[in-house]
C-alpha cells in the first residue's frame, strides 16, 4: 500500500516540477525591455546657465498635448515662491533657489524624470509596462498599466505622478524624454526651446566628458560633482551646479542601482525556481514521513 502511495506522490511532484520549469522559462522571456546601450543619449543640465525662463515647461506641455497656455504667461516669476514638483499637469518644472556663492543671480533648477540607467520603475512595475529604451529614455506602456502606483513608491526621485482626480482611465505621468520626437531625430522639446542651451542633449558618455571639462576649466564656478553620473548607478539626465546639490533639493543617493537589493532578493528566491520547488519537495517529504511514522506507531499498537 505504502509503495503505491509513494509512486503516486512522486508522479504528482514530477508533473508539478515540469509545470514550474515551464513557468520559469517564460518568466525570463517576460522580463521588461531594459537596454543599457553604449550610445544611449542623455541631457546635461547646467544650472549655472539656466535663467529660469520656464520656456521648457511650456514646450513640454505643448509636446505632450497638455494645456500649455500662452508662452508669455511663463514670464511670471511669482511661481518660484513655492518649490514645485513635476505632476500630471506639468511633466517638468523649474524651481528657483537663492544665489550660490559665486553670483548674485538666483539658481534655477529644472526638474523632471532622471531616466535612470537602472530604473527602479522598470524593475518594480507589476506588469512590466516600463522599459529602458536603447536611446536612454525610460518610457511606459499606458495600455498595460493597472494603476498600482508601485513605480511611484519605488522611484528614488519621486517623479512618476498619478491622475488621482480621474475615476476612469487615470494615468501615470512623467517625462518620457520626448520619445516620440527623438524617434524622428528631433530634439526633446525642452532642449529644443531652451534659449541659453542650459540643456545639452547628446550621447551620455560625451556629456560626462563635457561636464568634466567645464568643471576643470572653471573650478570656482562649479561644485566638483556631476549629479547623475554615478547616483543610483547613473542617470541619463545629469546636472552641474555652482551650489551644493543638497541645497537645491537633490536627494542624497548612493551609487548602487535603486532596484539592486530588491532584484537580488527576488532573483535569489526565484533562482530558476529551485528554492520554491525544493521547499515543496521538503514539505512533501515531511508530510509523507510524519504520516508514515504515525501509521507505524498505530500498527505497533494494534
Amino acid at each position: 500500500m505504502s509503495g503505491k502511495s509513494r509512486r503516486d506522490f512522486l508522479k504528482t511532484s514530477a508533473v508539478i516540477g515540469a509545470g514550474v520549469a515551464g513557468l520559469s522559462t517564460s518568466t525570463v522571456k517576460a522580463a521588461p525591455k531594459n537596454i543599457l546601450s553604449e550610445d544611449r543619449m542623455g541631457v546635461l543640465v547646467d544650472s549655472t546657465v539656466c535663467v529660469g525662463c520656464r520656456n521648457c515647461e511650456w514646450a513640454c506641455k505643448e509636446a505632450h498635448d497638455l494645456p500649455a497656455g500662452d508662452l508669455q504667461s511663463y514670464e511670471e516669476r511669482s511661481v518660484f515662491k513655492d518649490k514645485r514638483r513635476p505632476g500630471t499637469k506639468a511633466l517638468t518644472v523649474v524651481n528657483e533657489y537663492s544665489s550660490g556663492k559665486n553670483s548674485n543671480l538666483p539658481v534655477d533648477v529644472k526638474v523632471q524624470c532622471m531616466h535612470c540607467d537602472h530604473p527602479a520603475c522598470v524593475s518594480a512595475c507589476i506588469v512590466g509596462a516600463f522599459s529602458k529604451e536603447e536611446n536612454g529614455s525610460v518610457i511606459w506602456d499606458t495600455d498595460k498599466c493597472i494603476g498600482c502606483r508601485y513605480c511611484m513608491a519605488a522611484c528614488p526621485f519621486q517623479v512618476p505622478a498619478f491622475e488621482y482626480d480621474k475615476a476612469i482611465n487615470p494615468l501615470i505621468m512623467k517625462c518620457d524624454f520626448c520619445f516620440n520626437r527623438t524617434k524622428e531625430g528631433k530634439l526633446p522639446a525642452c532642449v529644443n526651446i531652451c534659449p541659453v542651451e542650459a540643456l545639452t542633449y547628446g550621447p551620455r558618455t560625451e556629456l560626462v566628458k563635457i561636464a568634466r571639462e567645464r568643471i576643470k576649466r572653471n573650478p570656482e564656478k562649479f561644485v566638483d560633482h556631476i549629479f547623475g553620473e554615478h547616483e543610483v548607478g547613473g542617470t541619463a539626465w545629469m546636472y552641474l551646479s555652482g551650489k551644493d546639490f543638497v541645497e537645491l533639493d537633490f536627494p542624497q543617493l548612493g551609487t548602487n542601482p535603486a532596484p539592486g537589493v530588491s532584484e537580488s532578493i527576488q532573483h535569489g528566491i526565484f533562482a530558476y525556481f529551485v528554492p520554491p520547488v525544493s521547499l515543496y519537495a521538503l514539505l512533501g517529504g515531511i508530510m509523507w514521513i510524519t504520516k508514515h511514522r504515525k501509521e507505524l506507531d498505530e500498527e505497533e499498537k494494534s
Binding site: 517564460s26 518568466t27 525570463v28 517576460a30 522580463a31 521588461p32 524593475s123 518594480a124 512595475c125 507589476i126 506588469v127 512590466g128 509596462a129 498595460k144 498599466c145 493597472i146 494603476g147 498600482c148 502606483r149 508601485y150 498619478f162 491622475e163 488621482y164 480621474k166 482611465n169 487615470p170 532596484p259 530588491s262 532584484e263 532578493i265 527576488q266 532573483h267 528566491i269 526565484f270
Partner: peptide, 29 residues
Amino acid sequence: GVFVDIGRWYFIWHPLVMWNGSSALFEVG
C-alpha cells in the same frame, strides 16, 4: 483591497498575462 486601490481596476487581470519577474509586487500578486 487591491481591486479598490489600483487606479485602473478593470485591468486587475493584467499581471496574469503581463509578467515582470523582477517585480516583487508581481510575485506577490
